[in-house]
Amino acid sequence: MNLRFQATKARTSSLVLVSPALVLLGLLFFYPILLLFFTTLEGENIGNYAQVVNSGTSMQVFLNTLRIAAIVTVVDLVLAYPLAIYISRLSPAGKAIALFLVLIPLWTSQLVRTYAWMVLLGRQGPINNMLIWLGVIDAPIRLANSEFAVVAGMTHILLPYMLLPIYNSVSKIDNSLFDAARGLGAGAFSTFTRVLVPLSIQGVLAGVSLVLVLSLGVFIMPALLGGGRVPVIALLIEQQAGSFLNWAMAGTLSAILMVIVMITFLIIKFATRMFVRGRIDVAST
């Protein structure tokens, strides 16, 4: 048996192994997307797309969605990076407990957590009560039904998606590298920018892409915590499909959102390539 034959055989048998998954994905995922895409073209050709692009409101909503996603991503990054570093320095037992605490929210329904935020941010909620008790404010202020509430909720729900990839790459860094940097004269800032960031950039970019992509499509948070004041694209899609029964327009908006997500993803993927070029070279030699 020659090698090429063996390789071909191996490839065929692995194709056989993945085929059930491929069929499942194709039927339940790609086919509906294709159907959706054809719906958007029905009768109007590309008219629906032109309508979206020409509509100031729709473009505004898209921009708003991108803006909120960017804020949530940045806040999560700022929160998760130090936390990931902190957890990576804990004892094995401490790490296990900390990661467990991080994962608990992921096992809780998003709806439950959203309602928890509504309670927290309510007029009679603990945050308002606390602020009044501290004397910061005299009367309850509106916390819920605002962009602040939406951003806070999304930041909370998406934090694990930022934290876990960053923690994963930070914890793989050999601790003696930090000693070496300090001993060679690097201060805390240089150690961070010259050693920690370059060695964890893959995890950071993975976290950023996950949170960014997920926050572009979030529906429950803006719907329940935004109180109609925070227009995002997911709400617009729901409105078109649910209230106006305009499936073509809902499909068009979804398709545009999907393209935005894919472009975002590609940009980050490209950035990852750029940043870790050196180590990819190493791996390939």
């Binding site: 003696s176 070496a180 001993g183 060695l199 870790v276 180590r279």
Partner: peptide
């Protein structure tokens, strides 16, 4: 102080 670490601690990204 110049130090040589047990496993060298060279920066892998440099």
């Amino acid at each position: 102080i110049g130090m040589v670490f047990q496993h060298y601690a060279l920066f892998p990204h440099l």
